[in-house]
């Protein structure tokens, strides 16, 4: 190719990416930097700023609510990441078998992932509703496990577990899709060879399926941590009393005594963690 053609091509390339990259630069990269700047100010909703130096950070690090929300986030992350990965893997193995109505079943189990959060949270709230919900009906009236109807979502401690189960329900389908895609590409003769070696179903899973899937599993785990670290809507809309880190940030920034500078400081710290995780993802998982 002549140099004129190369030049034309690169000019066209830049022209085509310019709008998208420009918008992303202006509304993602710049805000990230602006956020760091804001974290050194006392910031009001109407935009007034007063320089306070490191005060937002020292306030934050002395605030027990901050540590509490980190603790809640850690439990939330462990529960949801383990849950989605295990259920996703189990579902993928199940749906990889041949049976009647398989396509219908494969379609139906994607529903939770596609459905709008705002709609399904009400269904879940109704299930756990202390007066009308099926959960209390089963636990109290059918199984007689306890005598009193409990408001699981009203109490932050039990609500955390409802939120975790909800998140698993909502997001295991994406893990399932990733696992299923990989499972379908595992060569059949590996299983046949293992069967000839006398491996039973469990042995085949342990010695063939798991090693073949290990990169996908790493991908799923890391991606779930990254997404769930920032997850806001699923938690806030189902149980606003479960204070994970993003919800704590939201309350600081937009509810009660507004302190957007502190919220900015939380975001800066969280971003550092996130960048570390993304770096790990790009280095270790994408480039295998």
């Amino acid at each position: 190719m002549s140099s004129v053609l190369i030049k034309n091509e690169s000019r066209l390339g830049l022209k085509l990416v310019a709008p998208a990259v420009g918008i992303i630069g202006l509304l993602v990269i710049y805000p990230i930097l602006f956020n760091i700047y804001l974290s050194f100010f006392d910031v009001q909703l109407n935009g007034t700023k007063t320089f306070v130096g490191m005060e937002n950070y020292t306030d934050l690090l002395g605030n027990p609510r901050y540590y509490h929300s980190i603790g809640v986030s850690v439990i939330y992350l462990i529960g949801t990441v383990a849950g989605t990965t295990i259920l996703g893997l189990a579902a993928a193995i199940l749906m990889n078998q041949e049976f009647r109505f398989r396509n219908l079943a494969r379609g139906l189990i994607l529903l939770p992932y596609f459905a709008p959060v705002i709609s399904v949270v009400f269904g879940w709230q109704f299930i756990f509703d202390p007066v009308n919900g099926i959960y209390n009906h089963v636990v109290v009236d059918v199984l007689h496990l306890t005598d009193t109807r409990e408001n699981l979502i009203g109490n932050p401690d039990s609500a955390l577990f409802v939120v975790i189960i909800f998140d698993i329900w909502k997001h295991f389908p994406i893990a399932y899709l990733l696992f299923l895609a990989k499972l379908q590409s595992v060569p059949k003769d590996l299983y046949e060879a293992a069967a000839i070696d006398g491996q039973n179903a469990w042995g085949r899973f342990w010695h063939v399926t798991l090693p073949e899937l290990r990169f996908v599993i790493a991908t799923v785990v890391l991606l779930r941590i990254i997404w769930n670290l920032n997850r806001f809507e699923d938690v806030y809309l189902l149980a606003p009393n479960v204070e994970t880190l993003p919800i704590f940030t939201y309350y600081q920034a937009f509810a009660g005594i507004v302190d957007q500078g502190v919220a900015a400081a939380i975001s800066v710290i969280q971003l550092l963690v996130l960048v570390g995780l993304i770096w790990l993802y790009v280095r270790k998982v994408l480039k295998w």
Partner: peptide, 12 residues
């Protein structure tokens, strides 16, 4: 991968 929560304050 940068979630909306991290950008809500600066964007606002």
């Amino acid at each position: 991968m940068v979630g909306g929560v991290l950008l809500m304050v600066p964007l606002y």
